[in-house]
Computed example of a mutant assay.
Amino acid sequence: MADESNKKKIVHAHLPEDEQFTTTLTAGNHELLADEPTSVDGGKDKGPDPYDYLLMSLGTCTVMTVKMYANRKGWELGNTYMELRHNKQHDVDCENCDDPKSKIDVIEKELIIEGNLSDEQLDKLLDISKKCPVHRTLLGDIKIESSITQQ
């Protein structure tokens, strides 16, 4: 992953007027679909939902970061997988647990490594997995600047 911290990334999301939720996402030359599952009224399940994309972003960044580190160290790393889960649950010290708004988002990351690595190397890779740029972004201070334009 190249350091693009000073570059503005631009992606587009287009929800046509004749669609309920099916959205076309464009990033450079790449086009993807997002949708809601059929369990949501109007969802057609034509693509991952927005939280799936969030988890996929974190997962891809993590495995790429781990692979780069292992390559630099000359470690024999086989296939690398991430399994991610997202849910909402009450924080440990929840004061208003009866209030549904008191839940926090929890993302569970499981790094699955193939290869003949020592426990020390695996511990280091787990530590490195927490330093991928997307992981740090999600845990850092985020400022979202919103605007609207009518055409």
Rank of each mutant, 00 (worst) to 15 (best):
T60W: 00
M64I: 11
D18M: 01
L32F: 12
G28H: 09
M64F: 03
T38Q: 08
N79L: 14
W75F: 09
S57T: 11
D18N: 07
T65L: 03
L58R: 08
A34D: 02
E19R: 12
R72K: 11
K44M: 09
G42K: 01
E19Y: 08
H30I: 11
T23G: 04
V63D: 02
P37C: 07
K67Y: 08
T38F: 04
A34P: 05
T38P: 00
A34C: 14
Q20V: 00
Q20M: 04
G43M: 02
E19F: 07
Y51R: 12
D49Y: 10
F21H: 00
L77V: 13
L54T: 12
T65M: 01
T23Q: 03
W75D: 11
L77S: 14
A27Q: 10
A70P: 01
G47Y: 03
D18R: 03
G78W: 13
L25R: 01
T23M: 07
P50V: 06
D52L: 02
D18F: 02
P50Y: 04
L58M: 15
E36T: 09
L32D: 06
K44F: 06
T24C: 11
E19G: 10
K73E: 11
K67Q: 13
S39L: 14
D49L: 05
R72T: 07
K73H: 04
G43P: 01
G42Y: 01
E19D: 08
S57V: 05
S39R: 15
A34I: 09
S39W: 15
N79Y: 15
H30A: 13
C61A: 03
L77C: 14
V63C: 08
L77D: 11
K67G: 11
M68T: 12
G42H: 00
T65S: 01
T22E: 09
N71L: 14
F21D: 00
S39E: 14
T24Q: 12
T24Y: 11
